[in-house]
Design a protein around this nucleic acid. Structure first.
Lengths: 342, 342
DNA sequence: GTGAAAGCGCTAACAC
DNA sequence: GTGTTAGCGCTTTCAC
């Protein structure tokens, strides 16, 4: 990489002159126009990119700020980032936690190990990992990381965990349906090549509890893997397939809000009455579920509390390196509406 | 701030030993257990936080990577970040642009200047600024920044711009309504203490064109500033107020998708037929608008193209510092559905 | 097993 | 106006 020293050699001046020009202080120190122009030109031609680590290091007036790596895959719910940043800003401005900054490291599910060098070299003061696939979890387990790691899913002893009890969410839903006297329960879920572990856990919690409570369980999917933007379409297909069958479950749990929107539009078209013909609970947060007729009962990931807990845990670990890993399990709230009463 | 040198003094060893222990290479270099334990303890007690700038600088094997500051306010549409990161990852993996990393700097609208030190000290290789308020734009204009700045809104000559023509969007809508023979047009918009400049521009384009085409324009809002999460409720209130008036516009443009969901639910309850009684165009992207009965015609911010252009512009400027500012105006696509045919 | 010393790329103080 | 020099905090090499 080209440094100001390289530029200074080409121009035939000292590195400090180059620095002065490139940081915009040429005028105040009265560097000659000709030299300024020449330095700028050479920098442009050589493709000089300032090394910010060096700059930060040498700047006397900068207070050092921890930098946290935030892994991010396309599969995460986009609202998370926004809420997380709002909560962060809020906590920092109220001085509830020390300042820190988050750098986003995009990765694709199952390919976390491509970022191995970032992790092993410990270039960040901490790492925040959203719910990842099992292969990513396996990779993390065997990687030696010397900075605090906060996971949003996955029970790895050496890491911190801030999560919800997905299994329990499933169990709770089963109990609600059982209390209402249902004997057959449907689960509608997206078709993933590899389903997310959180969905797997919720399915498992629901299925096992249903089994224990003598209710039948049936899975419904569109059986075709559409692009992520087409979840609504997937819901329509899944709902249509469901309606083609001999019997309908009298209670349905839908794993995703977009899926639900698609399914609900089909149900309404086909005259399925909700909750009379079928009670419905949806995992999700979409506004439309609230204003739908009838309004839809939801369970959803408590993004704000999770964010708050993440930030608190991270701050604690930054200030006290080597502290034993912590676990925070946040409760998942139900919002009961017309589609399924408590 | 505490450094490994501080720790070494307390422990009574050398800085390099501390470094070895703290980077997890104590075993391979056979540092004594006692010393390891002591160093770890002291580091924890003193609240040692490694300076990553120093670490990156001194690591021989690291290839330097540009770091870009991404300003982010709660008012931005959350989907943007997600799409932006997906596009980034895609472009990098296809080697269309050089690698770069984005660090999120949260700020509140109108308070961008609180981040002045970040900007003037030039601690990032580039800066990406989403649509900001006029006071933020004014602040940026008068701040001396020595690294490439890409704006998503605002015509400041010294900065780069990647944007849409909001005014033209308004004009286009006016022409569609005019072609359909409407003489009265409504604009429904959120109540903001300070409305976003993009909304102002679209309103302006629509109003001016309506005026030129001899159509009446009326603004509708809820007139109460609910929290951002209540945009749906705002839409309901605005719609109810609208229905209380003597006459209804025969064409309505709604500035925001959540607002539209609220308004549409009121219209449907009150038996307003769409598009017969009122044609509707919505600015937004929400899935529900597509599956609504009738389906809703939308215009929306072309996030993917904008992201792609931002990244391209940024990469160009990183590689060729001092290149003249660029402007990229992206076209805003209409999706015609039942609520308003072309 | 541990310490001394060089050097990463840059800024800033000071000398000329 | 421009160059020299001393660090910023850390890793790494090499000597002991």
């Amino acid at each position: 990489m080209v440094s100001i020293y390289d530029i200074s050699k080409v121009v035939g001046t000292s590195a400090s002159t180059v620095s002065l020009v490139l940081t915009g202080r040429a005028e105040e120190l009265r560097i000659s126009q000709a030299k300024q122009k020449q330095i700028l030109e050479v920098a442009n031609r050589m493709g000089y990119i300032p090394n910010m680590s060096a700059r930060k290091l040498s700047s006397r007036n900068l207070k050092h700020m921890p930098e946290i790596a935030l892994f991010w895959s396309p599969a995460q719910h986009s609202i998370f980032l926004n809420i997380f940043m709002n909560v962060l800003q809020d906590m920092i401005s109220k001085e509830e936690v020390r300042e820190m900054r988050f750098t986003i490291l995009p990765y694709r599910n199952g390919e976390l190990e491509k970022l191995e060098s970032v992790l092993t070299a410990n270039y960040y003061n901490g790492v925040l990992v959203p719910p990842v696939f099992s292969e990513d979890l396996a990779f993390l387990t065997k990687t030696s990381i010397q900075v605090p790691v906060v996971l949003l899913y996955g029970d790895i002893p050496q890491f911190n965990l801030v999560s919800v009890d997905n299994f329990k969410v499933g169990t709770k839903i089963a109990h609600i349906f059982h209390r209402h006297g249902h004997t057959s329960v449907g689960i509608m879920m997206p078709v993933y090549k590899t389903p997310s572990l959180t969905i797997v856990q919720r399915n498992k919690g629901l299925s096992e509890a249903c089994h224990n409570l003598d209710m039948k369980v049936k899975l419904y999917t569109s059986e075709m893997d559409l692009p992520p933007a087409n979840k609504v379409e997937e819901g329509k297909i899944a709902a249509k397939k469901m309606l083609e069958e001999d019997s309908l479950p009298s209670a349905l749990y839908i794993q995703n809000d977009s899926l639900a929107l698609g399914a609900l539009s089909v149900f309404s078209q086909q005259g399925i009455r909700i909750p009379e013909d079928m009670e419905i609970i949806v995992y999700g947060i979409n506004d439309s579920l609230e204003i739908h007729h009838p309004s839809i009962t939801t369970v959803c990931y408590p993004t704000e509390e999770i964010s708050r807990a993440c930030i608190t845990v991270m701050a604690t670990l930054l200030d006290r390196p080597g502290t034993a890993p912590m676990q925070r399990i946040i409760d998942t709230p139900f919002v009961f509406r017309e589609s399924c009463r408590p």
